[in-house]
Amino acid sequence: MAELAIVLQQIVAGLALGSIYGLVALGYNFIFNAVGIVNLAQGDFVMLGGYIYGGTLTLLLGLPFLPALILTAVAMAIFGIVSQRIVYYPLRDAHPRMVMLSTIALGIFLKNISLIAWGTYPVSVPGLFGQRGLRIAGVSILYQYIFILVCVIILLAVQQFFFRKTTLGKSMRAVAQDRLAAMLMGIDAYKVIAITFAYSSTLAAIGGVLLAPVFMVSQVLANVGLKGFAACVIGGWGDITGAVIGGLVVGLVEVFSASYISSVYKDAIVFAILIGFLIFRPQGILGRATEESL
């Protein structure tokens, strides 16, 4: 019974972490679908979101959760637009390899500028619930985990509505499907691409805000980017549902391998599974995207 309770706790923790990885994976996918490049600074965007929310808005300015969340999202959306202007737009006709290098360079810059701005010590953010949790029948589940799951579900529902019903959402999908055709239909593709970057950065920022109370905010938070990438591969590239499922898988694998195999090697195990997928099932679980698309 006690064993079952622990497993249940871990499943919730894994799903909560995994849903964040799913958000990061969505960020990769939107940019990839729109411009065919992978923003390798995505993890650093998560870290930056966490720092802006935790380090500046919460601890320094003492803002309550909701205004802090909204301000972080807005700041990161603007940052997304600015950064695509620097790392993507000048290189839009160059080989995707160059964009990849420029996003890696941006990531290095962000990691180190945040060290200067927020210091080398990890920033600890209490969050809405601190370490309090739900206790039922020996099972103890942190409120933060439940909160993360609820937030992500709401976000996904809003996103679904946005892409299906709004003009902007439809034009984003059109640009992702065929940029040239979308431009011929009168869509300002570069504006839409800028908005796509803004949205991806916002997703990363929300990930950072929700993760901040779970992990402390430090450079290590940027590793979430690699987990998100693993989620993309495991779920299948270019696929919205796949990204979320892949994220959940990565989260569960991480939590269970930390407690049953080795907490030191948990990241290595995630990578090993990623490599396994690349070898045996490069199209991912859902298997819609083809290998050739990369």
Binding site: L40, R97, M100
Partner: peptide
């Protein structure tokens, strides 16, 4: 052998993974 059938980003991320696993070990 396993990674080079893959292109671009897959290769980079997989090799990042390889480097990190090596360091852990």
């Amino acid at each position: 052998i396993p990674t080079l059938r893959l292109k671009g980003y897959y290769l980079s991320i997989t090799t990042i993974g390889f480097g990190e696993i090596t360091r852990f070990i």
